[in-house]
Design a protein around this nucleic acid. Sequence first.
DNA 1: CGATAAAATAGAACAGTGTTCGATAAATCG
DNA 2: CGATTTATCGAACACTGTTCTATTTTATCG
Lengths: 240, 240
Amino acid sequence: MAAPTGQGAPTSPARGRRVRSRASHSLESVLAGAVEILDESGAQGLTIRALAARLGGGNASVYWYVSGREELLDLAADSVLGGVLETTADVGSGDPIDDLRTISVAMFDAIADRPWLGAYVLRQTARQIHSLRLYERIGQQVMRLGLTPRQTFHATSAVVGYVTGTAADMGQEPPEVVVSGAVSREEYLAEATAQWRALDPDEFPYIHLIIDEFAGHDDRDQFIDGLDLLLAGLRLRANR
Amino acid sequence: MAAPTGQGAPTSPARGRRVRSRASHSLESVLAGAVEILDESGAQGLTIRALAARLGGGNASVYWYVSGREELLDLAADSVLGGVLETTADVGSGDPIDDLRTISVAMFDAIADRPWLGAYVLRQTARQIHSLRLYERIGQQVMRLGLTPRQTFHATSAVVGYVTGTAADMGQEPPEVVVSGAVSREEYLAEATAQWRALDPDEFPYIHLIIDEFAGHDDRDQFIDGLDLLLAGLRLRANR
DNA sequence: CGATAAAATAGAACAGTGTTCGATAAATCG
DNA sequence: CGATTTATCGAACACTGTTCTATTTTATCG
């Protein structure tokens, strides 16, 4: 009745001399298939039926490994974050704020080109074990700054909030016309900036000041620049 | 469900006086109804049928005012942000960073108790006029710091990213069991912290350091504390 | 071994969704 | 008044997540 939603790998299915008349999955293969679909066609493209078809089985089989679509998305996001955990496994021996920066950038990179990820990352740590560990790892760097528990908690939340918020914003699912390929990404951006240029300069001085920057900006640079603002403020507080 | 008047004989033109046999809407009433439903039952509760029923008309009528559900959500979110725009109308004559703080907090307050808002705010400025103006207003405060266009753009994006990211995170739609009322919010939180407390202290020192803070924390305080970190870093850069 | 229980798989059906279509009523205007 | 535009609405379509039940495969154990 209860599906093994936590971590347990179902007993190995890979053996058998007889030809299978039924498909055979595992939590890992289900999540891998989900991530594939998500990467290809976004969160909207991940339907239970599409996933079942990719796995070569029936729809209902997915529900053996996952309680529903929501948990599927949470776990798929969490599985990707496992990669970030590995990438940053050895971080933690340098300057605390430098280490914080390293982890944050790694996290950003993971989310940046996965538009679907932002919305499901660090949502339900009860079922997202990798997310929890990543949160812990970030918190540990902040701990080394010697602040109070309260300050440590707030600073960690601020960093996580900035990273996920900015990454989610930048990795936003493009409109369907772009996904479908009817309009190229460049055309779409050109039209957006054109619309901004048409705004009244007296009413929108800021937009007009930064429009050229916007038109040719790099998301990653922008993210890191903002992150450094936050970390500068944090360093200031730590040295007080 | 039924039409307000005279559903029995739709085509009968009632002798002396005309009887309205059809509902009549407007974009404003459609968005207002949408916001009502969103406030009551979250993004998942906003279905076209539920909205049409509240407006007392047919489903298809909604599509006269809005291209689809996606645009409906974008516009509903934008209409709420109009309130923030009014609240902060007179901001802009004090210390730039203080003003930035004021606007950010106003924006946070608007999103905080509207779990659905976070995901749709500042998404499609092409159709979200209030969002665009709010973005402009934030940018104008940053402009006053006398940074380069590039720095101004990055700093503005950082503030917006932090505010929306943190607010969206904090205003997350609670699990269905909480929404439905099967489990109270306190019980849910108690269970979550209990699960954290059960973690190995050697492996999760950070979690154990902050668990008491987490259990009794106030979202708003936490948000403002983190915001001040970011603004401190910004002030540092401005004075350089 | 073989029987019995448990773990997995899958087809079909259910209730609900966003959206489109065509008909039609109401408002507008010459 | 008639003609045209604006707005409303029921019905239908294609698709969704999910559940039910039956069935197959694997593990357990006397």
